Simulated assay, not measured.
Amino acid sequence: MFGFGFLEMPRPFNTQYRCYSVSMLPGQERLDVEKGGKIIMPPSALDQLTRLNIVYPMLFKLTNPRAGQITHCGVLEFVADEGKIYLPYWMMQNLLLDEGDLLNIESASLPVATFSKFQPQSEDFLDISNPKAVLENALRNFACLTSGDVVAITYNEKIYELRVLETKPGNAVSIIECDMNVEFAPPVGYSEPTKVSKESQEEHMDTLDPTSFMPEVQGFIAFAGEGVRLDGKIRKVKNEEPPPIFKASYQRGVPDFDYQFGNLKFIRAVKKEDEKEKETLESTFEAFSGAGQSLRQTKFIN
């Protein structure tokens, strides 16, 4: 006699709850829920899921009956009040939900992800040195991804939003224990920098005046004044020319734009006279104070 047994097929879990954001959860602040893609459900849901032989990991399809928005998520804990569930704020934004709205929850079985493509919603995401590593670390708190969702990740106390543009092999995939390839699309509002050709750069450099980069000369400039007549009259000039602009021959920190290849200039700083030595020289010097000598020998008369 052979006995035949029949495996009990899992029955779907489908019910409605009042949804609230994680900030409304009584007790301590749950940042771990806000930074991921999992929800908190009541204990009665766990009892019902156990009796229905739900396939693990537990994944759910969330539907807003009023707006028709759909997303998918996992479950973190079963500690919510009866008849209520708590969602991350970014998930409530995707579903167009307000505090206390009704939400349909249905058990789901999703394929394992092999590919996903994200689009940052801000150019600030380009400041991250290794975005794939940051995203991989953030997705550890997620159970699944849905195409079209805008997920929020936190890095260095700053929130970055990324839109899920594409997922394979389906529009909703499970990312638990999977090997997934990730690509990034250009951020919203980002434009590629224009490349300047070498010819246009050379033309631009030819039009520049090297002397215009030199700073203004400070201090005394020889022959830079203006002439004045003794009788006070103004000199009349038919073709009045602008006064010449004097440039310093050399200034520290300014390159020599007239440099010719093969010439070397050794510029040495002029040694300033010590004020103390100058004062001692002036104090000891006396004019016509030397001792005179005669070529003839003086005769002494006795």
Rank of each mutant, 00 (worst) to 15 (best):
V164E: 00
V164Y: 01
T167N: 02
P169Q: 03
V173P: 00
S174W: 00
I175L: 09
E177Y: 12
E177D: 15
C178P: 03
E183D: 12
E183M: 13
F184P: 01
A185R: 00
P187K: 00
P187Y: 01
G189R: 10
Y190M: 05
Y190E: 02
E192L: 12
E192I: 05
P193V: 01
K195L: 11
K195Q: 14
S197T: 09
K198G: 02
E199N: 08
S200W: 04
Q201K: 11
Q201W: 05
E202I: 14
E203M: 15
T207M: 15
T207Y: 13
T207W: 10
L208H: 04
D209R: 11
P210K: 06
P210R: 08
T211Y: 15
S212I: 04
S212N: 06
F213A: 11
F213V: 02
M214V: 05
P215I: 00
E216R: 14
I221D: 05
I221S: 12
A222H: 09
A222V: 03
A222D: 06
A222T: 04
F223M: 10
A224Q: 13
A224I: 00
G225N: 14
G227C: 03
G232Q: 03
R235T: 05
K236I: 01
K238E: 10
N239L: 08
E240Y: 11
E240H: 14
E240Q: 14
E241H: 13
I245Y: 07
A248Q: 13
S249E: 05
S249V: 03
Y250M: 06
Y250Q: 11
Y250G: 02
Y250E: 07
Y250A: 10
Q251S: 12
G253T: 01
V254P: 04
P255C: 06
P255F: 08
F257D: 00
F257A: 11
F257C: 07
D258Q: 07
Q260F: 08
F261V: 10
L264G: 05
L264S: 05
L264E: 07
R268K: 15
A269Y: 11
D274H: 07
D274T: 03
K278H: 03
E279L: 06
E279T: 04
T280L: 14
T280Y: 09
L281M: 05
E282I: 07
E282L: 13
T284R: 15
E286R: 14
A287E: 15
F288R: 06
F288V: 01
A291I: 12
S294P: 02
